[in-house]
Each structure stands twice: as C-alpha cells, then as structure tokens.
Nucleic acid binder design. Structure first.
Length: 204
DNA sequence: CTACCGATTGACT
DNA sequence: GTCAATCGGTAGA
C-alpha cells in the first residue's frame, strides 16, 4: 500500500475540486499500536465566507483559526461531544475546508473496534464523529500539517474510481444552505453515512 | 459567570 | 421514522 502524503499543492486548489478528488484517497493515522488506514468514501466542501454553513462565515475565532491558515493542515472541531476532521484548502486567508465524513476501514481495525466499542466494520468510521473516535482524532490534532506523513495524513494509492461511482448530493446536517450539492460520496457504498436513501446518487 | 446552540449519534417507537 | 443526551465554543451580562 502506497502511503506517501499528498503534497501541499493538492490542497492549494478550489475546495470543491479537492473534496471531489479526496474520494478514494487513504486517511492514515499513526498510533502507538500501529497504523490506521481507511479509504475516504464521503466528504463535503465548505466554501469560505460566502457559505452560510461554513464555520468561517461569521469570521475568525479561536475555534476556527486553522481554516484561515495555509492549506494542507487539519481543522478539527468539537460538536455534540464529538470531533470532526477537515482538511484546509485554498491559499491562506481563504477559510475553506473539506469535512471528511466517512472512510472504509482497511487497516488497524482492532484499535478502531476498541475505541468505538463496536464490532461491525460498517459502524467504525461511518460519520464524522465516529471516524474521529475510531482514528483517535481530537482537538490536539487541530492545525497539524497533513503533508508531513507523520501523526495524520492523506495518501493516494493506485485506486481509481470511475466517474460513474462518484455521486453528489446536498450536505448532511447543515441548518443553512441546504440546497448546495457539496457532498461527494462513493455511490452505493455501505460505509457512507446518513440514511440509506442518501447512500445512492439522488435521482435527477 | 450564564445561556444558548450545533458540519452528531445512538436508542427507541 | 422520532427524539434527547451531550459539551466545547461563543456571545453577552
């Protein structure tokens, strides 16, 4: 498995493009008990200050300051007593990010099972909060550099998904800007979050 | 300091 | 399908 971290240039591009291309990439986490690896099957774009659903829309605070920094760093925030992982995109000063919503677990499943208290592979990293619990991600990793290939990073292996397998829908859970189709996911994947009807491409 | 609130989850009808 | 627990972040007194 090729696990070289994606370069800064990958993240230094329009956030929607990065979100789309992150589907199929590998999320990698170094822990004491070994490497955790999962294939990203669902992600959402948050578009800077013109997007009401983006945490940066109301301006910079201590919580969201990572999003205002350079691309290729993690933005980890707490919500409802969970954590969620984002990859910061676009040049510094453009506070946009991609929320990693779900991965298909590939390696390090025993540690994930232990932290999640669940056996079923589907239940380990389906949803942004579950994913962070399985991968031992918390606010300590906020702002960490995803391009160094230590602690936490994203890699691209030989896997290529066909255009037909990449689906797009409105974002899940947001209370504003419901209409924007900024959620990308692997069509039909069992490892995607949300109700079952959102596991497939919406009919058009 | 108090008073909300949410890019969630899991338990339950 | 519905619903409430959860708690850090934020704003405001």
């Amino acid at each position: 498995m090729e696990l070289t971290a994606l370069p800064r240039a990958f993240y230094d591009r329009p956030v929607v493009r990065v979100a789309r291309e992150l589907i199929g990439c590998l999320l990698v986490r170094e822990t004491i008990e070994g490497l955790l690896v999962g294939r990203i099957v669902e992600a959402e774009a948050y578009l800077s200050q013109r997007d009401a659903a983006c945490h940066a829309a109301a301006g910079q605070t201590r919580r969201n300051s990572s999003m205002f920094g350079p691309p290729g760093h993690a933005y980890v925030y707490a919500i409802h007593a969970r954590y969620c992982l984002n990859a910061v995109t676009e040049p510094a000063g453009t506070p946009s990010a991609v929320l990693i919503r779900a991965v298909e677990p590939l390696a390090g499943l025993s540690g994930m099972r232990q932290r999640r208290g669940r056996e079923a592979v589907c239940e380990l990293a389906r949803g942004p909060g579950r994913l962070c619990e399985a991968f031992a991600i918390d606010r300590q990793l906020d702002g960490s550099d995803l391009t160094r290939g230590t602690d936490l990073w994203i890699a691209q292996d030989g896997y290529r998904l066909s255009r037909r397998d990449l689906a797009r829908s409105p974002r899940i859970g947001v209370t504003s800007a419901h209409d924007l189709p900024l959620r990308f996911f692997l069509d039909g994947s069992r490892f995607v979050s949300g109700p079952r009807k959102l596991h497939r491409r919406p009919v058009r």
